[in-house]
């Protein structure tokens, strides 16, 4: 029995409690947004990247920063602007002088962290956006012909603003496809907002956040997630959902096979998060929305009828 398996053997029994403890820590800072937190955790467990879309002031940055603290991971934030250069993200060679000798020294950029928050990614130029591509997919960075691996686990959480589209550069399909999930951050409920106002208007100091899951445990959990068994019926259903997007009457453009892999992986992560040891049909149907909404393009007729991607996915799931 491997060491990690032995650890997991005892941790599997306590997995639900561990995540409950994680939520408890997050609830100190983040009020509501439970669904968003769950989806970010699913992205983490699936060892993939998540795109957050929401209006300003919903606590996206605060949420991710708090999550990084709970997971005891190194966190960095990159605020994307139109004048941001790729080297500002990856790092650059700088000249250093020691004892009269000059040499180039690599200065790592903010991407050298475990959780990278790419804020307002759609404001950066495509060249800068593509600097993230290699890092997100390969977990490595190439600077001055030198490839440097990133510290694992590596997780990119990108945010984008659905309004203020002027002067922005929408993510190209190739990059959007590399995000496992697109999470729509919604406004809090009235009761939640009352609580937020009470909490943050009263005090300024943040509560101390305790690390709940360590780096190695998270890596083990990511391996664990991939081992969740899934029946062949469920695999076929997942593929059927994704392939249906290519022939759907409301869609101009459907999802790629990467979406099939992503859907199964996300379903497995959801099963683990809910303390189940198998993937259910409900997992697939729930995860279809965040997995597919950024990988499909509505056709003119659907847009004319005021349809949104989620509406198209809902109709598709009814048919499948």
């Amino acid at each position: 029995m491997k060491k990690e398996d032995a650890m997991l053997s005892s941790e599997y029994e306590k997995l639900r409690k561990t995540f409950d403890a994680l939520y408890e820590q997050l609830d100190k800072i983040v009020i509501g947004q439970r669904e968003t937190v769950e989806l970010i955790l699913i992205g983490l467990l699936a060892d993939s990247n998540v795109l957050l879309e929401g209006f300003p002031g919903l606590g996206k940055t605060l949420m991710i920063k708090t999550l990084a603290q709970c997971l005891d991971l190194k966190f960095s934030r990159i605020q994307h602007t139109p004048d941001l250069m790729p080297s500002d993200i990856t790092g650059t060679q700088v000249i250093e002088e020691v004892g009269g000798k000059r040499f180039f020294k690599f200065q790592p950029g903010p991407i050298f962290a475990n959780i990278v928050l790419a804020d307002e990614i759609n404001r950066a130029t495509p060249k800068t956006q593509s600097a993230l591509l290699e890092a997100m997919q390969e977990k490595q960075v190439t600077v001055a012909s030198k490839t440097m691996p990133l510290d694992l686990p590596f997780f990119v959480l990108a945010t984008q603003n659905p309004i203020e589209q002027e002067g922005t550069y929408p993510l190209p399909e190739a990059q959007a496809d590399r995000f496992l999930l697109k999470v729509v951050v919604r406004y809090p409920t009235f009761e939640e907002e009352v609580k937020i106002a009470e909490q943050y208007a009263k005090r300024q100091k943040n509560d101390e956040i305790k690390a709940v899951i360590g780096k190695n445990s998270l890596l083990a959990l990511q391996q664990f997630t991939r081992q969740v068994p899934i029946s062949s019926d469920m695999v076929q259903q997942a593929v059927k959902i994704v392939t249906s997007t290519r022939t759907d009457k409301n869609l101009e453009y459907g999802a790629s096979p990467r979406a099939s892999i992503g859907l199964i992986l996300a379903a497995k992560a959801r099963a683990i998060l809910n303390g189940r040891n198998h993937v259910s049909e409900e997992d697939l149907k729930t995860m279809a929305y965040p997995v597919l909404r950024h990988r499909i393009i509505l056709n003119f007729d659907a847009e004319r009828q005021g349809m949104k991607p989620d509406d198209a996915i809902k109709e598709l799931l009814k048919r499948v």
Binding site: I230, S231, S232, D233
Partner: peptide
């Protein structure tokens, strides 16, 4: 439901 066939396929 779903468990038995998952066991069968794994």
């Amino acid at each position: 439901n779903e468990r038995l066939r998952t066991v069968r396929d794994s």
